[in-house]
């Protein structure tokens, strides 16, 4: 018989009683430890998010996005080009600046312009 066996034989009831008491965990301890674990993981995630490099969006891309993206920007550019072309080389007999100044609305300008073009083409 080893010294440990002898000790266990002599003090067995005390050791066994203490083991049973040790095995009774306080109520809620496991839940609190798991809650701590969740909180530590949440802190790591928050730190990782804060440490991630911010994505810098160029100003032109922000403007493009505000306008509605590439299709809208393309239409806008086409309209601007048409306006410049009409302003630089207006059809004969059409004074766009005069119409803009004298007309009450853009619709009137458009209507007059359409009539002028149709007349030039013999309609």
């Amino acid at each position: 018989m080893t010294e440990d066996d002898d000790f266990d034989r002599q003090l067995g009831p005390w050791i066994a009683a203490a083991r049973r008491e040790d095995a009774r965990l306080p109520e809620g301890l496991t839940a609190r430890i798991l809650a701590d674990a969740g909180q530590v993981q949440a802190e790591w995630q928050a730190r990782a998010y804060a440490a991630a490099p911010a994505v810098r969006v160029p100003i032109w891309r922000q403007l493009l996005s505000a306008l509605g993206g590439m299709p809208v920007a393309g239409g806008l550019m086409a309209a601007c080009a048409a306006g410049i072309w009409l302003g630089a080389a207006p059809p004969q007999g059409f004074d766009p600046l005069g119409y803009v100044v004298n007309s009450s609305s853009a619709l009137t300008v458009y209507s007059e312009l359409q009539n002028t073009i149709l007349a030039e083409e013999g309609y």
């Binding site: 003090l11 009831p13 005390w14 050791i15 009683a17 203490a18 049973r20 008491e21």
Partner: peptide, 10 residues
């Protein structure tokens, strides 16, 4: 009895 023994051991 467990409590008494455990306390004695402690």
């Amino acid at each position: 009895q467990d409590a008494a023994r455990s306390s004695a051991l402690q």
